[in-house]
Write a protein that binds this DNA or RNA. Structure first.
Lengths: 351, 351
DNA sequence: CCTAATATGCTCGTTGCGAGCATAAACTAA
DNA sequence: TTAGTTTATGCTCGCAACGAGCATATTAGG
């Protein structure tokens, strides 16, 4: 439009603020928040770093560590994240990856209109479990406290058959015409697929889908905060895991899901392990994250065959039986294979 | 701090703006931009919708459609995206998913300091190719014009051996001490792994890694815009694909990568297909996206065996030979399997 | 020395998949 | 019309990956 008048224009940036029709774009300003799901495995328990504050309107106390992103201070999002995580908790993050950006208004507000506009960018970080003394803030807490139905290490969690299945099925039956039009997949089908009802296989990666389904059905405590109709309709709502403030449980669900999927095609388990470990310890860590479905001998074949580890030469005694060889991560595997990981296949746990 | 003084506080939101230590958070405001990589397949060519503007300082004209996100107008990011995509291009998006959020300052500016603070959230949308008449803005352009080294449909692209391999190898040799300290993986190894030199397999999903490597080596035109040293050092830089403005080529690379990976475990190819199609057409579409590595008979076995399609009963004549049965997508497969997709395995194309 | 517990090595049968052979049903050029 | 070409479709063979179980090794504890 006024392009010719503006003299020698600054190259790309001005354009970056215009539409393809060369209309200037009105960027309404919002704040950027970074949320970190910092995950470790301590004593065969997958844990996330949470900070406890005061209870909110639904009694939730826990939040994930978060901080603002200030583009003036930090060149990159990840840089900003590492900086305030260090300040707040004393941790130096190793592996970190971006998860998802949430901006849904009303998700964390009773009064959507009055909501300040904050976009939150979720990050997943994997680290070795450092003792509580190393932390200046926050505590490690098992992620299965927030998602008890995800813990299949002692078989199918009872909570599914006892609390979830009957309620989701009754919720599916009173399918409103609105929700029928909403999507092509009916409520009952979504429930079947997510939670493995009626012989459907359990997919350990569908952590987020399961939580969102419970949320929609008003079975997650967070739904009551938003004042969802579905939440009001339950006369007695079972306690399905610990709630978190804001939408942090959703971010944690995304983090678990990503961890479970990534562990299979990238050697990220080793971010969670000490430098030396036995194969059984490694297996227990994988199972803590994924659920148990590998038989010991085959796990060994898998991991050794893929060249993911090498023996250190030492052994670990006092294991209660024959001493176990100690291994370390073979970093060179990154140079050899395009997608190394603990390629455990889909569990046949259909039940 | 002043929590007690503030009377009955609004529940979660106020807290959302505080650190765990209950310090109020200073959110510096930034603009949110949404970038859409809208992908289709037209005449067996994977295409993206691009808008052409005037050349920037490096002569790049093309951008991906983008628009601002205004939280006052739209509840969700995806809602905002669909709205302005419709306004700008006339397209109604079907499938859309979030890709990545970029906020790297200096990535799209000569003067990082003067850069306005815009965070851009990239989206991938898959759609059926609609003729140019259906578009009010933008053109479809083969994504291989921007990434010629990604097109393996006629074998290994010559550009790799002729232009990329020698230059990346010479770049790897003058590895600065700085870059050695930077990461554990040496330049030469990264190049080998990304581009499949020296017998390493080609991984079609590493689209972004390859582009970033070329960018770092100063071989992507965009690197010159930023004034990278590496870019200046080439006396003659080969033309490695069309550049785009801002960091849009990076977003497109992310989109290609995601498309290539997703097609394998979710039935997203069908978003790109007409309602009825022959198996050969389906195969050609998959190959357009991934590169060719499936033999016709096995592809049929794979797709039919997975229950992804069902015959319509009709046939398509004038194919030049025996008429081909027409198929349609079997939507019920979504209700049956946890992760249906065209499970083509890693191509053995090591060359 | 015997038993329990864990670590480790090996085999066997099934399955998924790459690759090729063979047949069916159209079109095309003499 | 007929032979040759082209594309579609069905089937089989062999290898490699993997789930599952058997067998052996090496410690601790009584």
């Amino acid at each position: 439009m006024n392009m010719e008048l503006s003299g020698r224009r600054k190259p790309s940036l001005e354009k970056f603020q215009r539409t393809p029709d060369n209309e200037p774009i009105e960027h309404s300003s919002v704040g950027i928040g970074l949320n970190a799901a910092i995950v470790a495995v301590a004593d065969n328990e997958p844990v996330a770093l949470v900070v406890r504050g005061e209870a909110d309107s639904i009694g939730a106390t826990d939040i994930l560590p978060f901080g603002p992103f200030n583009p003036r201070e930090h060149r990159t999002l990840e840089g900003g994240l590492r900086a305030w995580v260090h300040d707040q908790t004393g941790l130096d993050l190793g592996y970190a990856e971006q998860l998802y950006t949430f901006a849904d208004r009303g998700r964390h507000a009773e009064h959507a209109e009055a909501a300040p506009h904050v976009v939150s960018i979720g990050y997943l970080a994997l680290t070795q479990a450092v003792g509580h003394h190393g932390l200046t803030n926050g505590v490690w807490r098992s992620w299965y406290q927030y998602f008890p139905w995800e813990d299949w290490r002692r078989g199918r969690p009872e909570i599914i058959a006892r609390d979830i299945e009957p309620r989701l099925k009754s919720w599916a039956e009173k399918s409103s015409p609105q929700s029928v039009a909403q999507g092509p997949i009916a409520r009952a089908d979504r429930a079947r697929i997510c939670f493995g009802f009626d012989g459907m296989p359990w997919d350990e990666e569908k952590v987020l889908e399961r939580f969102e389904l419970l949320y929609e059905a008003g079975l997650a405590d967070e739904a009551a905060r938003e004042g969802r109709n579905a939440a009001r309709e339950w006369t007695e709502r079972p306690k399905l895991g610990l709630a978190m403030q804001s939408d942090h449980r959703r971010i944690l669900a995304t983090a678990i899901s990503r961890t479970r999927s990534k562990i299979k095609y990238r050697p990220v388990v080793f971010e969670l392990m000490p430098d030396e470990f036995t194969l059984y310890e490694l297996q227990k860590t994988v199972e803590a994250i994924l659920g148990p479905h590998l038989h010991k001998q085959n796990f060994r074949r898998l991991v050794e065959g893929a060249g993911l580890v090498e023996p250190t030469g030492d052994v670990k005694t006092r294991t209660g039986g024959r001493p176990a060889k100690l291994f370390r991560f073979r970093r060179e595997v990154l140079l050899e294979r395009p997608a190394p990981g603990v390629r455990v296949s889909a569990p046949p746990s259909r039940l």
